[in-house]
Write a protein that binds this DNA or RNA. Structure first.
Length: 228
DNA sequence: GCCCAGGGGGCTC
DNA sequence: GAGCCCCATGGG
């Protein structure tokens, strides 16, 4: 269906968005109590299931250390133990400390001053911090700073490849351009679109253990037509 | 037992 | 800049 209609990419992208929204409903991301929690969650969720991240964040809250000052004061081994459920805990403990150290050095722990930067400056700064790559930086910009940037993840790449709208090995920047060149920057749309793609990717994956087969037409709950 | 989650760094070529 | 490997929990 999607592939047969010769319409503008903007309409195509909005068609996909509407189908996902209609099927899954509003996602209201990012689940958190504060922008700082969004950032810690964004680091912890790198290649980890959100269920496990929730446990790690729950541990941080229980220990009353979910703030940059406390996290910096914690010994590495202690922090790693607290976030253990989120996998790669030693690496992520180092990443969390790197972010908090950056906040202390350049902003005297004032997160708002960092997040208030214009989008390009903020992205450049975030990418300079150890442990923050394109996806994590963009998730922080969108969900913590509330600035409209489109977040790409592996689900997005996989779904748009199955829709025959992007090659399987498309770069982060190229796939991001598909959205940013064809959609007006809109906080609500960008927020929900990424969350819905994630929801769809996760839901599809639960239907079959083999992700390569998860988005075929006959099992796609949204009615989107896939090409392979 | 096997697969894979809301990735990124470091290294090699 | 592409292609690897490493990190290393827990649920289905």
């Amino acid at each position: 269906m999607i592939k047969d209609i010769h319409i503008g990419k903007r309409i195509l992208l909005m068609n996909i968005f509407d189908r996902l929204l209609h099927h899954y409903g509003q996602q209201n991301w990012w689940p958190s109590d504060s922008p700082f929690e969004v950032i810690i969650g964004a680091i912890l969720t790198q290649s980890a299931s959100w269920r496990n991240v929730e446990k790690a964040i729950g541990n941080l809250k229980h220990m009353q250390v979910l703030d940059p000052v406390s996290l910096l004061e914690l010994p590495h081994s202690k922090l790693a133990e607290i976030i253990r459920p989120s996998i790669y805990f030693n690496t992520k403990a180092r990443k969390i400390k790197a972010f908090c150290a950056y906040l202390r050095e350049y902003y005297n722990f004032d997160l708002n001053r960092l997040l208030e930067h214009d989008l390009e400056t903020l992205r450049w700064e975030l990418l300079s911090i150890y442990g923050i790559g394109y996806e994590t930086a963009d998730a922080i910009i969108l969900y913590a700073a509330q600035q409209p940037i489109f977040v790409i993840d592996n689900y997005t790449r996989r779904i748009f490849n199955r829709l025959d709208l992007a090659p399987r090995d498309i770069s982060y920047a190229s796939l991001q351009e598909l959205f940013t060149l064809n959609l007006q920057p809109n906080l609500y749309i960008f927020n929900e679109y990424h969350a819905l793609l994630d929801q769809h990717g996760a839901a599809a994956c639960k239907k079959t253990p083999i992700c390569q087969d998860c988005c075929l037409l006959d099992i796609c709950p949204t009615g989107m037509r896939y090409t392979s």
